[in-house]
Amino acid sequence: MSKSFIRVMLWALIISYSLCLLYWMFIGFGRVRHVGAPLSYNLIPLETIILYVRHHNEISTSTWLINLFGNVGVFVPFGLFIPVLRKCLRSYIRLAMLFVPCIIVLELSQMILRVGSLDVDDVILNLLGVWIGYFIINRFL
């Protein structure tokens, strides 16, 4: 297979995955728009993470796993593929400079549309996922 074919396939994969992620974040998993509900947000770093860790016995395992590990896992593919596709993004800092604003826009959108909340801990966990993906691929680049 040629390098250009592989690049096209990787772009198609990351674009398809991004569309699936948008679906999951705004429509999937039984999300309901809470019309008239107050805006939901957390701007205190690590507050939600600590809450889930401290009260893991009181929170369902699926909720705990999805909120902590799911927020990390769903962003790992971006750390794996984006640095391969864009050489200028082969740095933890450059990836953060790209993804932090994107994640914040997604979080703000969830809050404004009332299909979720803006949580700074989600930004932290999502970025951690990007960095884990980059760490993995960095070993092979």
Rank of each mutant, 00 (worst) to 15 (best):
I59A: 09
I136S: 01
G28K: 13
V35K: 02
H56Q: 15
I93E: 06
L68F: 02
F29G: 11
M9Q: 02
F69Q: 13
R33A: 03
S62E: 15
A37Q: 15
I15N: 07
H55Y: 04
S2R: 12
A37K: 08
P77K: 01
I44F: 06
V74S: 05
I124P: 01
S91D: 07
V35L: 10
L22C: 09
R54P: 07
G28I: 08
I136M: 04
I27T: 01
S16W: 06
C102H: 03
L128T: 08
I103Q: 03
E47R: 15
E107N: 00
W131S: 07
A12Y: 07
F135R: 08
A96N: 04
W11Q: 13
G70K: 03
S60R: 13
Y92L: 09
V8Q: 14
L95H: 02
L46F: 15
G116Y: 10
L21E: 00
S16K: 11
L43H: 13
P77T: 12
T63K: 11
Y134E: 11
D122K: 09
V130W: 00
N138P: 00
K3I: 05
H55M: 11
R90L: 03
R7F: 09
L13E: 13
R86K: 15
L127F: 08
N71G: 08
V84T: 05
V53W: 02
F69C: 11
P38K: 11
I104Y: 02
L125W: 12
F99K: 02
F26S: 10
V115S: 03
I27M: 11
S40E: 14
I15Q: 10
R139W: 03
Y17F: 11
W24Y: 15
I93H: 08
V74G: 04
G116K: 06
S18W: 10
R86P: 02
G36E: 10
L13G: 09
L89I: 14
